[in-house]
Nucleic acid binder design. Structure first.
Lengths: 216, 216
DNA sequence: GTCTATACGCGGATAGAC
DNA sequence: GTCTATCCGCGTATAGAC
């Protein structure tokens, strides 16, 4: 018994096609009309499934973040879990770099982003970090991941050697080349991750020792 | 001898009023028509002074970044200079948080942003950091400053306690409150800055020692 | 050189017919 | 649930007045 007409549009199809457009041509390329055309439909039909364009973007972002593995929390020790999670998070975002500027606005009403934040916070608190530290460490890791995928450093450098060479001699280096930009962002991320987790481990031990000291 | 009619519009006035609008009502509130109205002029007049809206935004961003003090470079030791610079940079951006999402796209053709990047890089290289490290450390600091002013953590949390309490018990904490968001972002920034500079100092000494070891 | 009037082609979004 | 028709605001190009 086949149901003869299944609905032409579903939220999942809309999100999938929207993601494809953004990945291929950037955030600005996604318009309601363009998205509708790609779905072989007229633009207003989309409003039967999403109230606004922003809701569609939220759904796209949520689907990407939902892919981030969180299984290391509760399994590994907090320093290893933090490292593994940050790398998984960064990998998920750099697979869809064009949507990062939108995600950077904050977790908003995207459940996966909140689940993510909740998981990190919970892991750190369970490990013994004071809540205030757990909140700040979670934020810090977000800065690192968002910053290194946003292209805040590498993107935006103009592809015009002449533009730099004269006025900014120090910058006339390899990081201007597109293929090196990824390396700079990934290298900066790894340097930051190593340095932060190592430093936080030291601080954690100091905190534990000071508590023990108070008790003894 | 007064020149009777001075031009109504100047680049400086346009930039100033644009900054005011963005600070007060956000990036989206800035349209060419709105800006022109505020300047008591019609929108197309603006194109006599800037070729595109993006050029105006670039100029606004550049003016803000031009305020960042760079005098610590060449005066202080690199760890102190790095700390002082990062704080000055962050202070400048958090005075105009609404424009940070635009700035986060990269330095583009904004000279002040390039001067900034050049100054950090130069200081680190002069201090003895290998160029690859200097590039990555500069990027890392940018992630930290951009992230903590972007509101990537604090902004975007919805002002609706009910929204979190049920599903995300760990998050039902003080950082949802607007007045605490600033504290979270500033606290995370300071924690990251301290931890990173301390860790980098250690690494710098290791690098110096390994070079000495090779030579001896 | 600076400003105005006007207009084009897009964008997001809505109302109401089928 | 999808359509057609439509609204309004956007960035900006052009032509012409001063």
């Amino acid at each position: 018994m086949v149901r003869p007409r299944q609905p032409i549009l579903t939220r999942a199809r809309i999100v999938h096609v929207a993601t494809t457009i953004i990945d291929a041509e950037g955030l600005d390329a996604l318009s309601m009309r363009r998205l509708a055309t790609e779905l072989e439909v007229r633009a207003p039909s989309l409003y039967n499934h999403f109230a606004t364009k922003e809701e569609i973007l939220d759904a796209v972002g949520d689907a990407i973040i939902a892919e981030v593995d969180l299984s290391m929390f509760g399994r590994d020790e907090w320093p290893d879990a933090l490292r593994a999670w940050a790398r998984a998070y960064r990998a998920a975002l750099s697979a869809h770099p064009n949507i990062v500027p939108f995600l950077a606005r904050g977790p908003g009403r995207r459940p996966a982003a909140l689940r993510l934040a909740d998981a990190v916070y919970g892991c750190l608190v369970d490990a013994g970090w004071p809540p205030g530290y757990a909140t700040r460490i979670g934020a810090l890791m977000r800065y690192l991941v968002a910053g290194s995928t946003l292209g805040s450093f590498s993107l935006g450098f103009v592809d015009d050697p002449e533009f730099y060479a004269a006025a900014y001699p120090h910058l006339a280096d390899a990081h201007r080349l597109p293929e090196h930009r990824q390396q700079v962002d990934e290298g900066a991320f790894e340097l930051g991750l190593d340095t932060l987790v190592a430093g936080l481990t030291v601080r954690f031990d100091e905190l534990a020792r000071s508590r023990t000291g108070t008790l003894s």
